[in-house]
Simulated assay, not measured.
Amino acid sequence: MTIEDLIELYPTGRIQQTKASSEWLSLPIAGSYFILAKEALQETEIRLLETIFPSKESIVDHKKHPWYDYLFNQTALESDGTFRIIQFQIKKPKDFLQSEWENSIQEIFPNFEDFFFTTENDGALIEKYYKNHYTLEDIQSIFLTLDADFDSSTTAFVGNFFQANEHLPNLFQEEQYIFKQEAQNLRGKSAFSLPDVALHYFTKEAMNQSKIITTFASQLVLTSEIRQIILALWHNQGNISSAAKDLYMHRNTLHYRLEKFYEQTGLSLKRMDDLVFCYLLITK
C-alpha cells in the first residue's frame, strides 16, 4: 500500500516527518508518517493499520531478516523462487518458552527462508516451495501440537505460493488484511487459508449493501441454537452425522430441528445452496 492509496482511503489524513501525539495514529511509510485521528477510526481498524504499517521501533533485526524489509518496506530482495507466507498470532502463557518455541518452528519447517516476530504476539514464516510441502491439515496439526506442548493458543493463516517479485509485498498486505478480518469468524481451526474464507470475504460487502438481504435478515429470527447448527453444518460440508457429533446432539434431534427450521422459513439446511445462503446471513 502506497501513500497515494492511504490518501484515497483516508482523505482527512496528513503526511509529516515526525510522529504525532498519542491521540493520533502515526503510520510509518516511505520515510515519513501518515497521520490519522484515532477518534475517527474503529479499534479493529487501528489494529489492522498498525499491523500493515508496523512501528519503526521494530523488534525485528533488519540485517538478519531481509524479508521483513522486503515485505513491509518494499526494499529489494535477492531471492528467486516461489514462496508462501504463514502468518501467525499466538497467545502466550506468562512463562512462555519463547526460544524453545522458535527452535521447534525452525526444526519443523526445514525449507523456511525467513522467520520473525513482528510484534510480541504476531509473526511470519516464509517458506520456499518444495514438492512435498506441508498441507493445511499438516500445519494445523503442527500448531495444535505446539500449543499443547507450550500451553499456548495459535491461529495461523497459510498464504498462497507466489513468485518473489515486486508484486509479492502487495499480495502479502492483502493476505494480512484477510487474516485479521476472517480469523474471528472461524471456530475450531488453528490454521486456515484463503479457500476457507473466500466465499465470506469476497461477498460480505455485497451482502451488507443489499437492501433485500438486510430486510430478509431482519424478518428471519435466528436463535443461538440455529446459528450453531448452521455453523456446524457449514464446517462439516453439510454432513448431518458429523454436524450432530460436533453439536453433541443426536442425529434424529438434529433432523427434527432442521425440519422445524424449514417449516418456519422455507429454507432447507439439507440443501447446500440454502446452507450457503444462511451461513452468509449469519456472518455478514
Rank of each mutant, 00 (worst) to 15 (best):
L49S: 07
Q87T: 12
H62Q: 08
E100C: 01
F53K: 13
S55V: 07
E43F: 00
P54L: 06
F96I: 00
Q106D: 04
V60Y: 05
Q106C: 04
W101P: 02
G81D: 10
K56A: 07
P93T: 11
T82K: 10
D95A: 11
G81H: 09
Q42I: 03
H62D: 02
D69T: 12
T51F: 06
S99C: 02
T75Q: 14
L77S: 02
Y70R: 05
Q98K: 14
L71R: 06
E100Q: 04
N73G: 04
E102W: 03
I52G: 02
I59H: 00
I46T: 05
G81E: 11
T82N: 07
R47K: 15
R47I: 09
I52N: 01
L48R: 14
W67C: 05
I86N: 15
E100F: 02
Q74N: 08
D95G: 10
L41V: 03
H65P: 15
E102A: 11
K63G: 01
W67F: 12
L49D: 06
K56H: 07
L71Q: 09
H65N: 15
W67V: 05
L77N: 04
E45D: 07
S104D: 13
I85V: 15
H62S: 05
I59E: 03
F53A: 13
S99V: 08
L77F: 02
L49T: 04
T44K: 12
P54I: 10
E43I: 08
V60E: 10
H65W: 11
A76N: 13
I46C: 01
F72H: 10
T75W: 01
S104N: 13
L48D: 06
Q89V: 05
I52D: 02
Q42Y: 04
E57M: 04
H65R: 15
R84C: 10
S99D: 05
S104C: 11
Q98L: 13
D80I: 09
G81L: 10
L49A: 10
S99W: 01
Q74L: 00
I108L: 11
H65K: 15
I85A: 13
S79T: 07
E43R: 08
I59V: 12
L97T: 07
Q87C: 09
W101Q: 06
H62I: 05
F109A: 03
P93H: 07
I108M: 08
Q42T: 12
K64I: 04
L97I: 08
